[in-house]
């Protein structure tokens, strides 16, 4: 039943927090090797959707397979094959970058911690800061560490919630390279952003989420900035 050619297969996913319905009967299929960019205003449900894929939040109803694994019955396999970046760094401020990466590697029971932590640190150009406590790093550098941590266990799917927020120009360039390397190695990614232009720059496919629904879903090819911006504006106004 594990269909590895689908990175994500979601059927009628729904989630409500108290009085607010965040996701309503969301369906989405994404083949492996694709970079899907999800656009949406704040409160559209992007973060909740990604948290459900990452097994951090439980859906109220519906079904989702990630890398062919069921999020409800095989969450550990989902987590083993998925790298996640959220709005927070998910790091310990009083541990050094190296200690944070080693701790994550221990949690993933990875052999060769030292080498792998060094490799991801170099990939994100933070190898000179390995000995610094995370607390002392700027927001942008913490974000890089978070990304390094997400790459540590060589996930086949990256789940990235606004990965570029707080990154400077150099770091955005690094991130683009990381994403294209990941894709070149056969990896897939779901990336959220509110920027139409960044979405067009990063994605193979663009999806707009509004009020818990997918209201737009097109491949990158043939989309131009002005058209997409026009469509997005119709949905992006806050509720």
């Amino acid at each position: 039943m594990t269909d590895q050619t689908q990175a994500i297969a979601v059927q009628s996913l729904a989630k409500a927090f108290g009085r607010t319905a965040v996701l309503q009967n969301l369906d989405l299929a994404m083949p492996a090797g694709q970079i899907l960019v999800m656009l949406g205003a704040n409160g559209a449900g992007k973060t909740t959707f990604l948290r459900i894929l990452a097994t951090l939040t439980r859906a109220d109803s519906g079904k989702a397979l990630v890398n062919g694994f069921d999020i409800a019955s095989q969450p550990e396999e989902v987590r083993r094959t998925t790298g996640v970046v959220t709005h927070s760094a998910m790091l310990y401020g009083d541990l050094t970058v190296r200690e944070n990466l080693h701790f994550a590697a221990r949690m993933f029971r990875m052999p060769g911690r030292e080498a792998r932590a060094g490799a991801v640190a170099r990939q994100l150009d933070i190898d000179r800061r390995l000995g610094d406590r995370v607390r002392t790093l700027s927001h942008g550098l913490q974000k890089r560490v978070a990304l390094a941590r997400a790459l540590l266990h060589r996930p086949s799917l990256l789940v990235l919630d606004e990965p570029e927020s707080g990154l400077d120009q150099v770091a955005v360039g690094l991130f683009e390279r990381v994403l294209s390397d990941h894709k070149a190695n056969g990896g897939s990614a779901v990336v959220t952003t509110h920027s139409v232009d960044r979405g067009l720059a990063l994605g193979d496919r663009l999806v707009i989420l509004a009020r818990g629904h997918i209201v737009f879903d097109q491949p990158r090819t043939g989309l131009d900035s002005a058209t997409l911006r026009d469509i997005y504006a119709r949905y992006a106004e806050p509720n």
Partner: peptide, 22 residues
């Protein structure tokens, strides 16, 4: 929740023409 669902349906009613525009 239903109320937010109804307003969302209102939005998706115009989905077809948006997809066409796309």
């Amino acid at each position: 929740r239903d109320a937010s669902l109804i307003s969302a349906r209102g939005a998706s009613a115009s989905r077809a023409d948006v997809l066409a525009a796309g």
